[in-house]
Design a protein around this nucleic acid. Structure first.
Lengths: 177, 177
DNA sequence: TCAATTTTAGAATGTATAGTCTAGAACTAT
DNA sequence: ATAGTTCTAGACTATACATTCTAAAATTGA
């Protein structure tokens, strides 16, 4: 939900959520029980919808470097777009840390999905001889996921497109060797 | 302050802050005026003390790759340490985004200090011929700062030392070419 | 010593907001 | 149509917490 993304769990009031969704407060309680449960649903759904483009790009049948570049471009564009409010998964990780196991588990799940998409793409690139066999796809996938989290963090404050693109260009070099 | 780091601004109550610092509530108000002002001081002081080791490491007179490796090692150790609660600058960036200009300015300042430390170290490495002249020290410095932010984010949730070290090892490769 | 100042503990105030309750309106199915 | 159900608006309750107030205790300075 847009409100959770912009304001975080704590600061998002039920009235704001109600107004933003057009669902009256009583119905929110009827459907979800309480604010936290609503948040868990919103967070999980966010994870599935928001990262689909990335999983699709990395899954495409084409040279893996093209896929990676597409994702890096998408990130550079996305995080520097005016009005970008960060990533709900990253934001929630910070807001809840490990104080809420369910929130943490959902964040882990989606982070894992992203890492897996990179890992599979890189492994495929190795098989096809597009990437050096010496590359550790797990480590590189973790690296790229971490890169995205850093960008999402900086993007929440506001980051210039050029700066984001520079960072991505540097990161891309880890696959060049 | 430890309390702001662990719980964030919103969730940290004056009573907790009072207890943690050993300063009675009324004195906090007398000294700082209000909670936000106290937070601004704490955040700024945190930035100066917490990153000093990094600036020192990068400023040392030795091969620049050694300095960079020292920082990456420090990060891998630090963020995976049990009880690591993230970085107050990163956390605050997420909690306040750009809703509080003063908070954002303090975060920018300290992030800039980190980028500058990397930039200077890399520039020195280029001068000495330790690094390729083709390297863009600004972009690489931004890249490493971003890396640290990503690690701090993941560390707040809890990250295995090995995973953090793998990510750092991959990142180090951007200077290898 | 003792008046002036500062510090302290805890009560009081005000506000925000999560969650519940109520009574009426709208809808559904027979 | 009408009994039963669901939805809605808004009042109500309970709680948490920032901030202020108060009066007693501790400290200071002449």
């Amino acid at each position: 939900m847009v409100v959770f993304l912009a304001r975080g769990f704590e600061r998002a009031s039920i009235d704001e959520l109600s107004e933003a969704t057009g669902v009256v407060r009583q119905s929110l309680y009827h459907t979800f029980g309480d604010k936290r449960t609503l948040f868990l649903k919103a967070l999980d759904q966010y994870g599935y919808t928001r990262f689909q483009w990335l999983i699709d790009e990395l899954g495409r049948d084409r040279p893996v470097m093209e896929s990676i570049r597409a994702v890096l471009n998408g990130w550079a564009d996305g995080v520097s777009k005016s009005g970008f409010k960060g990533c709900l998964v990253c934001n929630s990780l910070i807001e809840f840390a490990d104080q809420d196991k369910e929130v943490a588990a959902i964040c882990d799940k989606h982070n894992g999905r992203i890492e897996k998409a990179f890992r599979d793409a890189i492994a495929r690139g190795k098989e096809r001889g597009e990437l050096a066999a010496s590359i550790d796809e797990r480590a590189v996938a973790e690296f790229f996921a971490n890169l995205g989290q850093g960008l999402a963090l900086q993007g929440r404050r506001g980051i210039q497109r050029q700066k984001a693109a520079e960072i991505c260009a540097v990161a891309e070099a880890v696959l060049a060797g």
